[in-house]
Amino acid sequence: MNEHSDADAARALIACLDLTNLNDDCTEADIAALCKRAETPQGRVAAICIWPRFVALARSLAAPELRIATVVNFPHGSDDPERTAKDAAAALSDGADEIDMVIDYRRLADTPGHVERQVRTVKQAVGPKLLKAILETGELATPDLIAQAAQEALAGGADFLKTSTGKTARHASLEAATIMLQAIAAHGGTVGLKASGGIRSFEDARSYRDLVEEFCGTGWAGPEHFRIGASAVLGDFLAVAGGTARATHKATY
């Protein structure tokens, strides 16, 4: 890919970025800084993704056009579905636009159908707002379990499938994303994909975008259907888009 198309690709990836701060020590000052970073010289990111306790603050600080995503049932995935639904509804009331929920991935093997019911319960609370189901694919031991997780989340009404929380040792992988995209295609091809965790560079992110377009067609990987969940990678995107020197990014989320 030539320099010009690299810059264009980097700008397109910025528009698909869920700029994320889910650090345990996140502060109000960090949220204010995140809202500012979201408005980049190369365009606005797709959304910021933050803890629920900061949603109301972010909504008061961010540009009206900036989408705010938050997490529920995070990161363990084992809360009661009704509680998760209430947490999602509360976050939406505070001003969230999108909900990223962790499925109860530990129960996939021994309780078929539980994840489908779990996602459906939360989707009923979320309504027309965007619901991303986090499968935590790095913790699923086999491709069959990844496929089952994807299929149950889709059957429950998820609007996006997301790879990972970024809180475990194993994060996103192209192999897992391929299985998820196969499930999305079998479900009608309208649900989005979010890759998150361990994405450290422009090249990492572009690999996921290219995979999505291989399955779904050129131009499909816009923010309506494709997201990258990351934080420090924004600096690399901006460097590629602006043709400036690139640093080495080591953040995992």
Rank of each mutant, 00 (worst) to 15 (best):
residue 112 P to R: 06
residue 79 D to E: 15
residue 145 L to V: 04
residue 225 H to V: 01
residue 157 G to F: 07
residue 234 L to V: 03
residue 162 K to D: 11
residue 217 G to T: 05
residue 38 A to Y: 09
residue 179 I to H: 14
residue 11 R to D: 01
residue 28 E to Y: 03
residue 108 L to A: 07
residue 95 G to V: 09
residue 125 A to P: 03
residue 8 D to A: 15
residue 130 L to G: 00
residue 185 A to R: 15
residue 180 M to C: 14
residue 72 V to S: 06
residue 206 R to V: 05
residue 80 D to P: 00
residue 188 G to L: 11
residue 179 I to P: 00
residue 135 L to P: 06
residue 229 G to K: 02
residue 98 E to W: 05
residue 46 A to P: 03
residue 148 Q to C: 08
residue 63 A to Q: 15
residue 140 L to A: 07
residue 183 A to M: 08
residue 202 F to L: 08
residue 190 T to R: 15
residue 245 A to P: 00
residue 95 G to S: 10
residue 57 L to G: 07
residue 37 R to G: 04
residue 213 E to R: 04
residue 25 D to Y: 04
residue 111 T to G: 00
residue 31 I to S: 11
residue 202 F to I: 05
residue 191 V to L: 05
residue 107 R to H: 14
residue 156 G to W: 06
residue 109 A to T: 06
residue 140 L to D: 03
residue 227 R to P: 00
residue 159 D to F: 02
residue 69 A to N: 06
residue 76 H to Q: 14
residue 167 K to T: 06
residue 239 A to F: 01
residue 212 V to M: 13
residue 39 E to S: 14
residue 105 Y to V: 00
residue 180 M to G: 09
residue 9 A to M: 12
residue 249 H to T: 12
residue 148 Q to D: 11
residue 212 V to P: 00
residue 153 A to D: 07
residue 206 R to I: 08
residue 66 L to P: 04
residue 146 I to L: 05
residue 169 A to M: 10
residue 154 L to E: 11
residue 64 P to W: 05
residue 171 H to S: 14
residue 156 G to I: 08
residue 138 G to P: 09
residue 63 A to P: 02
residue 115 V to E: 03
residue 218 T to K: 14
residue 143 P to K: 06
residue 205 A to D: 04
residue 153 A to G: 06
residue 63 A to C: 13
residue 169 A to F: 06
residue 6 D to C: 14
residue 43 G to R: 05
residue 13 L to S: 06
residue 89 A to I: 13
residue 194 K to R: 12
residue 205 A to Y: 02
residue 84 T to L: 10
residue 88 A to M: 11
residue 38 A to F: 11
residue 203 E to Y: 03
residue 123 K to E: 10
residue 107 R to G: 12
residue 98 E to C: 07
residue 86 K to P: 00
residue 141 A to G: 01
residue 38 A to Q: 08
residue 140 L to V: 02
residue 244 T to V: 14
residue 162 K to R: 06
residue 111 T to Y: 04
residue 154 L to A: 10
residue 241 A to S: 06
residue 83 R to M: 13
residue 85 A to G: 07
residue 14 I to R: 00
residue 26 C to Q: 10
residue 93 S to D: 15
residue 89 A to D: 08
residue 214 E to A: 05
residue 9 A to K: 11
residue 204 D to I: 02
residue 4 H to D: 13
residue 138 G to H: 05
residue 31 I to Q: 11
residue 246 R to E: 08
residue 209 R to D: 03
residue 203 E to L: 11
residue 67 R to W: 03
residue 43 G to A: 08
residue 111 T to N: 12
residue 150 A to T: 03
residue 28 E to M: 10
residue 185 A to E: 15
residue 107 R to V: 02
residue 101 M to Y: 02
residue 195 A to P: 01
residue 189 G to V: 09
residue 240 V to K: 02
residue 117 R to D: 14
residue 122 V to C: 08
residue 141 A to W: 02
residue 11 R to I: 07
residue 239 A to E: 01
residue 37 R to I: 01
residue 49 C to R: 09
residue 22 L to T: 10
residue 45 V to L: 09
residue 15 A to H: 08
residue 243 G to W: 07
residue 220 W to Y: 15
residue 158 A to D: 10
residue 171 H to F: 10
residue 252 T to K: 13
residue 247 A to S: 14
residue 214 E to G: 12
residue 150 A to L: 05
residue 187 H to G: 04
